[in-house]
Structures are given as C-alpha cells and as structure tokens.
Amino acid sequence: MKRIAIDMDEVIADANLRFSEWYERDFATRILPSELHGKYFREAVTPEHREHIVQYLHTDGFFKDMAVIEGSQEVIQALAKKYEIFITTAAMEFPTSFVHKYEWLKIHFPFIPWTHIVFCGDKSIIQADYLIDDHVKHFARFSGQGILFTSPHNVHEKWTPRVNNWQEVASLLL
C-alpha cells in the first residue's frame, strides 16, 4: 500500500483563519483574504504588529480548535481506503502546539490512528510516496513526490503538481 504524508497547518487546519480571528480580537482590524495574496499573515499586517503576530505561534491555545479545511475530512477518509495515511506536522518549532494538535486530530480525523501522527522538524525523514504540504521547502530532500497545497503565501511558487483544494487532491490520487 502506498503512503501519503499530509501536513496540518494550511492543509487540513485553517491557521490563516485563526491568525485573522486573533488579530481582529487584539487590534480590532480584519485582514481580508484578498490582502493575503502572495503573503504570510505576518506580512499583511502593519510592521509594528508583526512581532505580536509571530508570538501567536508560541501562545498556548493558538492551535486549539482551528477550523477544518473544507473537504479534507471526506477526501482523507476516502484516501485511507487506498493509501496508508500519515499526518506529518513540523511542530517541533512550536512546543505549545503538541497537545492541541493531537487533540484536534482525534476530534476531526478520528480514523487516523495515533501511530500515524508524526510531530517532526525536517520532513525528509518521512518515508512516503507523496507529501501534501503548503511549503515547497519540505520537498527539497523528501524522497517521494511533493504535492503543493495552495495557500495564500505560496501562490507565486512554481511547483507541479499543485492542488488548490481537497477535490483536486481526490482527482489526483483517487
């Protein structure tokens, strides 16, 4: 059975929505999705707020109860009938995220066993046929095929194959 490794943030969990919610809470300003085109969230805010935004990632609770990326649950469940699925998240940089990410996965992806959840730094250690991720840097030393999942920050990246949503993942892999 072939293996698919799937990133969490901006692939199955909507981190940009969480940034937007917290930014609006803290600064009474809403960042529109159109303002994120070609940018990370921190690049879309005023310069004096950028360090505050970066600190969100190190704040307990940031990764708790994020919205699920539309279509991911259904497509991943269908993929799991044909492939061995692993969730691979580069969480080592954000130690406060571990418990919340694990609990989030148990709630939203209960069909993925704990043995198939990998908290890592360098994703090149993952032995899989495919890696679905929103960062091309994770494909550099990955031995399988990287599949770029479109997110506002990567719209200008040149990578093939690229998918824009989970229906495109289904068309590519099912």
Results as ranks from 00 to 15, higher is better:
Lys2Ile: 03
Arg3Ser: 10
Ile4Lys: 01
Ala5Glu: 02
Ala5Tyr: 06
Ile6Thr: 07
Ile6Met: 10
Asp9Asn: 10
Asp9Phe: 08
Ala13Arg: 00
Asp14Arg: 13
Asp14Cys: 08
Asn16Thr: 05
Phe19Pro: 04
Phe19Asp: 01
Phe19Gln: 02
Tyr23Asp: 04
Glu24Asn: 13
Asp26Val: 07
Ala28Arg: 15
Arg30Gly: 03
His37Ser: 12
His37Asp: 08
Gly38Met: 02
Gly38Ala: 01
Lys39Cys: 02
Arg42His: 14
Arg42Ala: 12
Ala44Lys: 04
Thr46Ala: 15
Thr46Val: 14
Pro47Ser: 13
Glu48Cys: 10
His49Leu: 04
Arg50Phe: 06
Arg50Tyr: 07
His52Thr: 14
His52Gly: 07
Ile53Gln: 03
Val54Ile: 14
Leu57Glu: 11
Leu57Asn: 13
His58Gln: 12
His58Leu: 14
Thr59Arg: 14
Asp60Met: 06
Gly61Asp: 06
Phe63Arg: 03
Lys64Thr: 05
Lys64Gly: 02
Val68Ile: 15
Val68Tyr: 02
Ile69Arg: 08
Ile69Glu: 09
Glu74Phe: 05
Glu74Tyr: 05
Ile76Glu: 03
Ala80Glu: 08
Lys81Tyr: 09
Glu84His: 11
Ile85Ser: 03
Thr88Glu: 04
Thr89Lys: 01
Thr89Gln: 01
Ala90Thr: 06
Ala91Pro: 01
Thr96Cys: 15
Phe98His: 14
Phe98Ala: 12
Lys101Thr: 07
Tyr102Val: 03
Tyr102Pro: 01
Ile107Ser: 12
His108Pro: 01
His108Leu: 06
Ile112Lys: 10
Pro113Cys: 12
Pro113Trp: 06
Ile117Trp: 00
Phe119Thr: 00
Gly121Tyr: 10
Asp122Cys: 07
Ser124Pro: 05
Ile125Ala: 13
Ile126Pro: 02
Ile126Glu: 13
Tyr130Leu: 08
Leu131Val: 07
Asp134Ala: 03
His135Thr: 05
Val136Asp: 05
Val136Ser: 13
Phe139Cys: 06
Phe142Asn: 02
Ser143Tyr: 00
Ser143Pro: 01
Ser143Met: 11
Gln145Phe: 03
Gln145Ile: 07
Gln145Met: 13
Thr150Met: 14
Ser151Met: 05
Ser151Trp: 05
Asn154Tyr: 10
Asn154Lys: 12
Asn154Gly: 13
Val155Asp: 11
Lys158Met: 12
Trp159Asp: 08
Pro161Cys: 11
Pro161Val: 05
Asn164Asp: 11
Gln167Pro: 01
Val169Phe: 04
Ala170Ser: 15
Ala170Cys: 09
Ser171Asn: 13
Leu172Lys: 12
Leu172Met: 14
